[in-house]
Nucleic acid binder design. Structure first.
Lengths: 232, 232
DNA sequence: TTCATAATTTTGTTATTACAAAAATCATGA
DNA sequence: TCATGATTTTTGTAATAACAAAATTATGAA
């Protein structure tokens, strides 16, 4: 971790709830969702430990957790890497996202206050701006924030954490094809439709809009991935 | 772990793919789903390590993994316990189960061969017998096997592992109220309906049967839990 | 050059140890 | 009897070291 844009602090900094393994875990996770590592990048325990300025034990535990939840993969008894894109995993995760994010959306839709609606509009503007300026990392970050702002409404923590794990599972491997993925203004239409349906207090319409967004994303991602696979 | 009915071997026995932490993880998991520990039972690292005849490191990693996926909970900075029953968690997990197990069922239904159907019938007979003889641990085990035999048909490993995590999240905490939960022949009707629908090659009917089973289970479990909470 | 094999380095795992902090126990006083 | 504070024990964490196994590099012959 170099001191560039992340909000994580120095190695074993202040109030990280203590545990170094938690610090290591969220550091790696942050870097994964920021697209710091390309698919195939190796993550040996000792390198990670050195980078984060911690011992081997917390680094090992963090890596193993990530492997366990599928954010990293083991390709050999002693080699874990950032996963390569995997169309069948993408399909699976998409199916699960439709089921679970649809559920969260529908359960929470009626609880949207004006504050939340305002927040969603602000986020959407940020996304649009980021896409125009080709700051894809920021766009991804805010897109996630848009979705989770809606999902949080249902107040189902177990559901939320399960969904988050799903995002992590494919997030990293698709980062490097984001430019071609985002050629069009990704998701704008669906997001606006979702906001409108929230205003209308129409849960199934919100769900439909979010599902559409997920499906659109899937199609574009799949296409971009296939083209890249063909090209190489 | 005493040598009764489990298939796990002695401490650091033969071909457990090597890792002691995996051995520890699956040992604890097995005991949790068998209902060995009552809710509230403490699991200190050193005790677990001694019981499994491994060092503190693999025991620690196993326990942390289980906490991470919600099968155990931390109630203090240095105390993890088997979770107490939690009605809102039960509700959440049930909603997720309906979405995800419904998905798995529907995707896999058309792939049921005669072998699978036979296997399901055999399992169902075992369940019925176990319930009659009040061997609730076995009944639970085979009930899980029934469900997962169907879910495996869709060949979606990510989905499978997510569903398994859900079972683990509530499994342990509801073990000690199984007797009152199972007063009636639990699930028989729904299971048979599912098998019939599989024979008919009717995916949505299979899904409906499985969802019914999940909902029935939820209602009974909730009722049993509420009665026990009232009584105490 | 290519492929198999040998030598070397890297790597994951685990037991151990030290330490600080939390939990449990005990003592004391009201 | 109960609360409160002090003491003792237990506990989780993380660094380290040792080891075996895997991964890598070097080497050699075809």
């Amino acid at each position: 971790m170099n001191e560039n844009t992340t909000e994580e602090e120095s190695p074993a900094s202040e109030l990280h709830s203590g545990r170094l393994s938690d610090f290591a875990y969220s550091s790696i996770k942050e870097q994964l969702t920021r697209g710091v590592y390309k698919p195939g990048h190796k993550l040996p325990i000792r390198s990670v430990a050195e980078m984060l300025k911690v011992g081997a034990t917390p680094a090992r535990e963090a890596i193993n957790r990530l492997v366990f939840e599928g954010a990293l993969v083991m390709v050999g008894p002693k080699t874990v890497i950032v996963p390569h894109l995997d169309l069948s995993a993408l399909y699976e995760v998409t199916q699960m996202r439709l089921a679970l994010e649809g559920l969260a959306t529908e359960k929470g839709a009626l609880r949207a206050t004006n504050d939340v609606l305002d927040k969603l509009l602000v986020i959407q503007e940020k996304i649009t701006l980021s896409l125009e300026e080709k700051r894809y990392g920021d766009a991804l970050h805010d897109n996630k924030e848009f979705h989770f702002t809606i999902y949080r409404l249902c107040e189902m923590p177990h559901l939320l954490s399960t969904i988050e794990a799903l995002w992590l599972r494919i997030g990293a491997s698709f980062h490097d094809l984001y430019p071609e993925f985002a050629e069009a203004k990704y998701g704008v239409h669906n997001h606006l439709a979702a906001i409108e349906a929230l205003v209308d207090k129409d849960p199934s319409a919100v769900r439909a809009a979010m599902e559409n967004d997920i499906r659109d994303g899937y199609r574009r991602l799949k296409k971009a991935a296939q083209e890249r696979l063909k090209r190489q």
